[in-house]
Amino acid sequence: MSAPTFDIAILGSGPVGCVLALSLARHAPDPGRIVLMGPAPAARRPGQSIDPRALALNHGSRQMLQPLGAWPAQAADILTVHVSQAGHLGRTLIDQADLAVPRLGCVVTYDDLLDTLQAAVRASGVTRIPQRPPRPLPGRPVTLQLADGPAQARIALISDGARPQGLQRQYRQSAVLATIRAANPIAGRAFERFTRTGPLALLPHPAGTDLYSLVWCLHPDQAQALAALPDPAFDQALQQAFGQRLGSLRRIGPASTFPLSLHAGPSLQGPGVVAVGNAAQTMHPVAGQGLNLGLRDAAQLAHALQPWLADPAADPQPRLIRYARQRRLDRGLTIGITDTLPRLFATANPLARHAGGLALAALDLIPALRNPLARHLLQGQRL
């Protein structure tokens, strides 16, 4: 059989796929032997938004992206996070000073992040094929069916965001996304408020010091109805749910909705095939952990393959197996936290809701309880 066309095929050109390509290219003798597959980003005019999402990137993700030349020009710092529960006493405040870091994280827009990453990929020497990623046929080598015929790669890394098969949970929630202007903004402060319908988050927005990115989780029917409300009615509903901590709140522009569910499957998909990011796990957006976990997947996989890149004729499978084993703890803890929190605080059981308020109060009063959780959300488990 002829030699593989590529050493590594990365199937999916979203943020995780781009970070994986950049991280591997830094250590590859010939970056052109790495191919990144995925449709080219849609062209957009200055000021135009293609994707409405604002992304909370934690301190660990920023440390990962900056050396790759992939940090967006516009970012809003998160210095503190205020966590509360609607209708109950008890809250906790997570502060960057308690964790000895310059910031807990930053908020960037999806469009800015992807534009920056794509520009870095173009300068990296990685081969780019702008087509929908094929499903790989595991083997040694892996077979890929491209638009102009079959190709082969020694390793295929799936980062296309397709929902993995395995653990599943339907939350019966959708997230309402919108940009909000606050009359009395608090610099660097993000809010996570647990309500009976689901979490409500307000994150500092990179487009303005008085702007916040809203992520409000509700039953799908409620979410659709809320997103369709005229501005005054939407603002009134938001004010009632969030309170007066930021003064009056006004929606800027339209709202959009996304359905929420949990899907998690094995990292190792077969001989020579590994899934990362949303192709390995898609999670509830509470605490903003999904992309951060995917970026840790990419960083640890690139680290695991770094020695192999110097000798791609060697069998990569032992390294892939070791990578999958090392990712279990971080993935399991993060999936567990993001799966438990929204269901715990949305329960109709009054005792459980009071217990949630007491837990928030305990976290606020006892750093030994608060800081380990905060540090995991800040950087995950790194082996």
Rank of each mutant, 00 (worst) to 15 (best):
P232F: 10
R296N: 08
D210K: 05
D297F: 02
P307A: 09
A201E: 01
D235R: 04
H205V: 12
G208R: 03
Q222I: 06
Q289S: 13
P232E: 06
A264S: 14
L301S: 12
L203R: 03
L291Y: 10
T282E: 00
V273G: 05
H303V: 10
A279W: 02
L249F: 06
S213C: 10
G272A: 14
P206A: 14
V276W: 00
A304M: 10
Y323R: 03
P285R: 03
Q269V: 04
Y323A: 10
G208L: 07
Y212D: 06
L309T: 06
V276Q: 02
L238A: 03
A324T: 14
H284D: 02
W216G: 06
A237I: 07
C217G: 00
D231V: 15
P206F: 14
V215Y: 01
A302V: 14
V286H: 03
R327C: 12
S261Q: 14
N278G: 13
L260E: 03
H205L: 09
L320W: 05
P285G: 11
G272F: 13
P220T: 08
T257I: 15
Q239R: 09
H263R: 12
N278Y: 03
A310L: 09
S267D: 02
D221C: 03
L200W: 00
F258G: 00
G277Q: 01
P204M: 07
W216V: 11
L268T: 06
G243H: 08
N292T: 13
D235I: 09
L320C: 12
Q300I: 11
A207Y: 00
L229R: 09
Q326G: 13
V276I: 15
V273E: 02
V215L: 03
P318W: 08
R328V: 15
A299W: 09
L211C: 08
L200I: 04
A201S: 10
G208K: 02
L301N: 08
G265R: 03
T209P: 05
L249V: 12
V274L: 04
G247S: 11
A237N: 00
P271S: 15
A264M: 13
A313S: 14
P259G: 13
D330E: 05
A264I: 09
A227V: 06
Q326W: 05
G277K: 01
A299D: 11
A324L: 09
M283S: 02
N292P: 07
H205R: 06
C217M: 08
A287G: 01
R325C: 06
A298V: 11
S248W: 05
P206G: 14
A223S: 04
V286I: 15
A299L: 14
W216E: 05
D210M: 05
V286A: 09
P312V: 13
Q300E: 15
H284I: 04
Q269I: 02
L202N: 01
Q326V: 12
Q239E: 12
A237Y: 01
R296H: 13
P271E: 14
S213K: 00
A255L: 08
Q306K: 15
A227P: 03
R322E: 15
S267C: 15
R245M: 06
S213N: 12
Q244H: 14
Q300K: 02
G290T: 04
D297A: 11
L293N: 03
